[in-house]
Design a protein around this nucleic acid. Sequence first.
DNA 1: GTTGGGATTG
DNA 2: GAATGTGTGTCTCAATCCCAACTT
DNA 3: TGACACACATTCAA
Length: 557
Amino acid sequence: MEYARLTMVDTRPTTLPAGYLLRNFRHVADWVLALYPDLLCEADMAFHRQFQALSEPAQHLYLRLLTRTRPLIAVESLSYAEVPNVTSTLDELQQAGFAELNPQVDAAQLLELQTRSRLQQWFAQNSRSSAKKTELVESILAQHSAADIHNIIARHQPFTRALRQDCFDRLLLLFFGNGRQDLSEFIITELGHVRYEQYRIDGSTRYFQSRADVETLQRYLQVREQLEDPAILSDSIRLRECHALLPDHRQQPELQRRFDRIVLIIARQLERLQATDNALALYQQVATHPARERRARILAKQQQPQLALQLCRQILDDSHHPEELEFAEQFARTLARKTGTHFALAPAPAVREFTLELPFTGAAVEIVAAQALSDAQHVCVYVENLLFCGLFGLLFWDIIFAPIPGAFFHPFQRGPKHLHTEFFYPDRKTLIESRLEEMATPGWQQRIWDHFESRSGIANTLVAWEALSPELIDMALQHIPASHLHTIFRQLALHPGLYGSGFPDLIRFSHNGYELIEVKAPNDRLQPNQRRWFRHFADAGIPARLLNVTWIDADDE
DNA sequence: GTTGGGATTG
DNA sequence: GAATGTGTGTCTCAATCCCAACTT
DNA sequence: TGACACACATTCAA
Ligand SMILES: [Mn+2]
Ligand SMILES: [Mn+2]
């Protein structure tokens, strides 16, 4: 099945056609119904059928309710050209089971929805007018019953809430494959704020394979949302209840990644609440770093250094994650020292360092250092990850957006599925390897310039256009040997998500070469991912140093 | 009175 | 002084409006 | 809607 893009205007329109919200939702629903008829439950089908049976104003209004950030909405605030009569339209939504008027809800939320002055007015709170709104809400909650609060607010300021949000969310989830994007993508694109690559969308390889996949992912997203609630974060019982809600990932990489991330959050929070044994048990279910690091740290804290050491040995034996390995080496050294165990390990390679005294102006240390290291012979730029990720993204642009089956499934992607995981490389191995080989032939840089020209401004997670001036690219290509770029690009290609971070802050060009410099203000140390790149730079002969800045107090001297 | 953070909008 | 843990700001799509804090 | 990098606080071991 071929995906048909909505036709969008070429130039930036100042206004959009009336009813754009409904048009966009219909586009989403049509595509999902065509692609996933077997993954929709009866509730989903009924939802769509009954939605279509609504009058157009009612359809518009329902979508408006759902695109608000908070579930409770003051009826007064509903004012749209597409909905001439809000009251009767809301009534239609109620009758059809798409909205409810003045539902019984938490009194605090209801009060929070109102303005401060109205609360004072309605609840005759003559108390200090300087009281903060949250204090005002507290005092009203203390003085009035929930039923009174509900009645008073419903009388002065009727409110509504959309129903069947789960069906709506599921439709969007089936379309986007994530819980982060929504209908606003259509507007953003149409207004020209973001330009997406025009890759081909292949409906023959679906993002979701079964209904269980959809429900599992939806549940994961719900639990992750619950984990933002401070009341849950501070209660180990409720945290474990959250964990129990998580369906099994059934060894599916995409689901496992999300499962692991959530369990890591829960377990870490259990640690903070001193529920150490519960945390340990949860970490054991997680395959993703830093689960084993946390387990080792817990074991060490529980006076079980031998078990901790054993776990470190296991990591050193079977891990492919550079930061996990780095941790295991270092932690094993500490443990061995403490327990008197012999533990043979080569010491970590030393990092070359130098020091500068700079005036403290309040500006970011990287900016100040870059200026201090710039002069007539040197150009020093604060680039962090942006330069190398950007050059990689430009050189491999066509490979990144190559129509690998399943890689592209909706029109608003800044990269293929799995771009940030270890699955990126194997699916594109031959393409990537031959592109890397090209770097041995003169003029290989032309491909970077070609993509820089032809794809300029198009969204790509690896390419931060505003940070990549032609001058910077030119200096980089002139001063950095191809062999150096080659080894960096190879690492990036193997796992763009992992290796795309930890690059030094600065690059400093001089007449005959270049140098990478990581700036450290007092109280800052090399982080594990930065250490990992330094190690790689040392192996590859790439010049990199650590700059320790000490501040000169402007008042002192 | 100003301002700054959100929510809303296209 | 290491090592470890925790909190913060910055990307955000950009213009506009509203409202709750303030005298920046 | 996280990822990432930094700043700051606390703890701990020579
Ligand atoms: Mn940095
Ligand atoms: Mn730095």
